[in-house]
Simulated assay, not measured.
Amino acid sequence: MRVMILAMPALAVLALAASAATGQPALSPQVAEGQRLYAENCAACHGDDGRRGAGFQTPIWGERTQIAKFNNALGLFEYNQMMMPFDDPTRLTDEQKWAIIAYMLVNHGAIAPDATLDAGAAATVRIQ
């Protein structure tokens, strides 16, 4: 656990440096953590880019994708609570799932890269 706590600030610094170099807004610590968790827990099936995974070939974010069927971030969270990760939906904590969803929604264009997502605001975050 100590390694994870020490790694979080390092991830935030790396995200800030990368965003400064590209002129993009910095990733919030939550989105940066979601990016890491997505790579570890989701990319094997959904692909690094959310489009060409070995287990699920249908793109999961971007134009004309399945993510819009959830209507808002709360619907996406509720689905993930029941179904993801596919091999064990209980493997990730709620906090980890919110981070992954925040990362997904940044890639979809539904929230800003520097945003933070939680249960209180999730129903107001529309997914189109």
Rank of each mutant, 00 (worst) to 15 (best):
M1I: 05
M1E: 07
R2L: 12
L6V: 08
A7G: 07
M8W: 06
A12F: 12
V13M: 10
A15V: 01
L16C: 15
L16H: 13
L16P: 02
L16Y: 13
A17M: 09
S19L: 10
S19P: 02
S19T: 04
T22M: 08
A26I: 05
A26V: 09
A26E: 06
L27S: 05
L27Q: 00
S28G: 08
S28Y: 03
P29G: 08
Q30I: 14
V31N: 03
E33Y: 08
G34F: 01
L37P: 00
A39K: 07
A39R: 05
E40A: 07
N41Y: 12
N41R: 10
A43P: 02
A44G: 03
D48N: 08
D48V: 09
D49K: 12
G50T: 08
R51G: 15
R52G: 15
R52W: 10
G53P: 00
A54C: 02
F56G: 01
Q57P: 05
Q57G: 06
T58E: 08
P59W: 07
P59F: 08
W61C: 08
G62F: 03
R64W: 07
T65A: 03
Q66N: 05
Q66F: 00
I67Q: 02
A68E: 12
K69G: 07
N72E: 09
A73F: 04
A73W: 06
F77L: 08
Y79V: 09
Y79N: 15
N80Y: 10
M82A: 15
M83F: 15
M84V: 15
M84S: 15
P85L: 12
F86I: 13
F86E: 13
F86V: 14
D87S: 11
D87A: 08
D88Y: 02
D88E: 12
T90H: 12
R91A: 10
D94G: 09
E95C: 04
E95R: 12
K97V: 10
A99N: 04
I101L: 13
M104S: 10
M104F: 05
L105Y: 03
L105P: 01
V106Q: 03
V106F: 04
V106L: 04
G109P: 01
A110T: 01
A112Q: 11
A112R: 13
A112V: 05
D114S: 11
A115D: 05
T116W: 03
G120K: 07
A122N: 07
A122D: 07
T124N: 06
V125R: 09
R126N: 13
R126W: 09
I127E: 10
Q128I: 08
